[in-house]
Amino acid sequence: MRATASLSRGLIAMLVLAMSAQLPLARAEIVDTDAMAAKTSQVEQERARVRDFLDRANVKERLQALGVDSMVSADRVASLSEEEVHALARKIDGMPAGGNLSSTDIIIIMLIAILIAIAI
């Protein structure tokens, strides 16, 4: 399973690199909005596009490993910005996941906060 996943990722990487190598460096066309926002050259932009593609595949797999349905994970990844996908690909495990909380938690937390304030 894992071997298949990394194999398919390798294949995708090769495919994308091959595709981007085929692209002519400069095409007569309008400058797109995301390119303007990024303020980078066309070559860097192509590189960023490849990275983004791989990051998205990576994050999709990570979401699935965290219990997200495979159909749903594609939509979730698609709604992320390039920067967000990149951040997730690098450090999803270290990111805060807001969740669990009960009213007793809140009371305990407020008490702890006050006790700490007194102790300082």
């Binding site: 219990g67 749903v72 709604s79 910005s81 997730l88 996941a97």
Partner: peptide, 23 residues
């Protein structure tokens, strides 16, 4: 829940809340 919850982390990531807002 389907858009932001991560079952095995028992929570939701900040960037996914932003993403769901876009959706």
């Amino acid at each position: 829940v389907q858009q932001v919850y991560l079952p095995l982390r028992h929570g939701s990531l900040q960037v996914e809340l932003l993403a769901a807002t876009r959706r």
